[in-house]
């Protein structure tokens, strides 16, 4: 990678001394600057993984304590939508990676196109996520402490308006393996824990997607301004690494949450 940064220094951009345009004052060489940035972003990604780790541990602990709860709860997640989102994110990772290549080769037109597609994919992901979330609020498949959840210890605490339109509550169309209303109360309450973990994990991931969208917007605007090229693509490269991690976390979340059977 680092070989690509030793770009020929064109000179003639106003600096009298031999200091490349994109080199910060405290670095000796462009290579050193690039390496430092690379190590910095990788270290940051490591902290991101650990940031999610507590929730993955929560997932593991509760799943190993209540495997049948986890299995049962998973049927309320929409696998088609989850799979679509996986594909959307994979595509976005591909276009972002291609964008890095474009920047390196100076294909600014393609770079702008790829960044735009990536941004659109991210928006699409959030749109689908919104559909999933709103469906869950409609159904009352929510965490234990929510007022409108159907996973209450005492069935009589579930609000009437939720019971009325929740298919999960009485298994109206027979699409689920059992009606929530008939479940053992303790079991029902534990289903709420699954959704607690589900909303925390996907919510935190969603926040990361939103941050990624801001990042993409910033990169897109900068590339329209003509900031990037073979001698300056660090920001694109590091942004792409962040985006791949966000993608990767989803790749783990999808089977762990949606595909338990």
């Amino acid at each position: 990678m680092s070989t690509t940064t030793t770009v020929a220094h064109e000179g003639g951009h106003g600096h009298s001394h031999d200091h490349p345009k994109h080199l910060a004052h405290h670095f000796e060489t462009l290579d050193q600057q690039f390496d430092a940035g690379k190590l910095g972003i990788w270290t940051f990604l490591l902290t991101e993984v650990l940031f999610f780790s507590a929730l993955f541990v929560a997932y593991t602990v509760y799943r190993s304590n209540y495997p049948e709860v986890w299995q049962f709860a998973s049927q309320y997640l929409n696998t088609q939508l989850g799979a679509t989102n996986t594909l959307v994110l994979l595509l976005s990772s591909f276009t972002f990676a291609w964008g890095v290549r474009n920047a390196m080769l100076g294909q600014i037109g393609l770079l702008k196109m790829n960044l735009a597609i990536t941004l659109l994919c991210a928006g699409g992901f959030m749109g689908i996520k919104y559909m999933e979330y709103s469906h869950k609020f409609h159904e009352g498949t929510l965490w234990s402490g929510n007022e409108d959840t159907i996973f209450r210890l005492h069935a009589e605490d579930v609000p009437e308006h939720i019971k009325e339109h929740s298919h999960a509550w009485d298994n109206r169309d027979g699409e689920f393996s059992a009606a929530v209303r008939d479940l053992d109360p303790e079991f029902r309450q534990k289903l709420g824990i699954f959704f607690g973990v589900y909303f925390c994990l996907t919510g935190l991931h969603g926040i990361h997607v939103l941050i990624g969208m801001l990042l993409l917007l910033w990169l897109l605007l900068r590339s329209m301004r003509g900031d990037f090229g073979p001698d300056n693509f660090n920001a694109i490269d590091f942004g792409a690494l962040y985006w791949h991690l966000v993608d990767l976390i989803w790749i783990f979340l999808f089977p762990l949450l949606y595909l338990i059977s």
Binding site: T43, L46, T47, E48, L50, F51, F52, S53, A54, L55, A58, W143, S144, G145, N146, G192, I193, G196, V197, F199, C200, L204
Partner: peptide
């Protein structure tokens, strides 16, 4: 860098638990 993110998410979960009774 290895330990602090874990307290970060744990405290965030306390916050979520406090405000939304997430239940964990």
């Amino acid at each position: 860098i290895l330990a602090t993110p874990v307290i970060g998410i744990s405290l965030l979960l306390i916050l979520v638990e406090k405000t939304m009774q997430i239940g964990i």
